[in-house]
Design a protein around this nucleic acid. Structure first.
Lengths: 155, 155
DNA sequence: CGATAAAAGTTGCAAATGCAACTAAAATCT
DNA sequence: AGATTTTAGTTGCATTTGCAACTTTTATCG
């Protein structure tokens, strides 16, 4: 079947699409200008930062990530080379890798955030009221919840 | 100065960020599974489709694009190789290239859209009411308008 | 228990992307 | 008109990314 897609919804998607790219491009440009790593590093480091023990397995990291499995392996390679994370084989299951954020990684996370934050503030937040922001969150939460891979199959 | 970024606004950005990736990943996967070209082709072809005479210069195409100058050159190379567009030097200004959508390009655009549309409908639109969609559009229009490169300098 | 299947990551290879340097054409400035 | 600057795109090179095939370790089945 062809799912229905009313014009109102399509227009909303277009706006979201463009908003996303404008903010991200500005943020990436800012990071580059400041000599900081790209957003992909932020996403991974931040996911680790939020995790209990600041540690996740590759597969858990991949959940929230925007990369393929192999892409994540390579990203973690780079983070490890910079000593922002450590990578240890799980003693209980030899297939699993434990990725843990280092103090240095936390520092880099903060450095990236200092720049990224500015991009979000200027390109995005500056144009929205408190009510706008709350409405956006409420509406988009429906999308993120419904499409959360954690809720497989039965919603 | 450090621009302010209230938690409400930050949360809205996070939701937008995740929503975007969920829908795009699903759409790209769908396109790949259907043996169709990626979204980047759609964006370029659609921009041409909307243009008067279905024709734009590289620089105009780059405006709405999510690519660097060089990235766009390469994308257009591929589209040209597939005969989805034609590329002609402007007779009036030898620096300028006119990129024009071919009928074949329109066909491919429709093929991509048939799949992309399904992704948007299922991953995004299905979870939103009419009111949600209208609110999203209204709110995000503030962002897209304010950050439109066409409105340089003075907003 | 031994064979088979499944899961977790990694690697080879090809495609895509960005930055910086470059070419070519037009506009500007004496 | 000739030299300089600006504009529009393209190309070289290095980085990033994804898919598919592979390795290793654990789980499952007869």
């Amino acid at each position: 079947m062809t799912p229905s897609l009313p014009e109102t919804h399509l227009e909303a998607w277009r706006r979201l699409y463009v908003s996303f790219w404008r903010v991200c491009n500005a943020a990436e440009a800012g990071l580059q200008a400041a000599g900081r790593p790209p957003l992909s590093w932020y996403d991974a480091l931040y996911a680790l930062y939020l995790a209990p023990g600041r540690r996740l397995r590759m597969s858990e990291l991949a959940r929230g990530a925007l990369l393929s499995k192999s892409g994540l392996t390579r990203l973690v390679d780079r983070l490890e080379k910079e000593k922002l994370i450590t990578r240890r084989t799980c003693p209980a299951d030899g297939r699993v890798q434990h990725i843990e954020l280092t103090p240095r990684g936390v520092g880099t996370l903060r450095e990236i955030w200092a720049v990224y934050r500015g991009g979000i503030a200027r390109q995005f937040a500056a144009h929205l009221t408190e009510t706008d922001a709350r409405d956006l969150t409420r509406i988009l939460a429906k999308v993120t919840t419904a499409t959360d891979p954690a809720n497989e199959g039965q919603p």
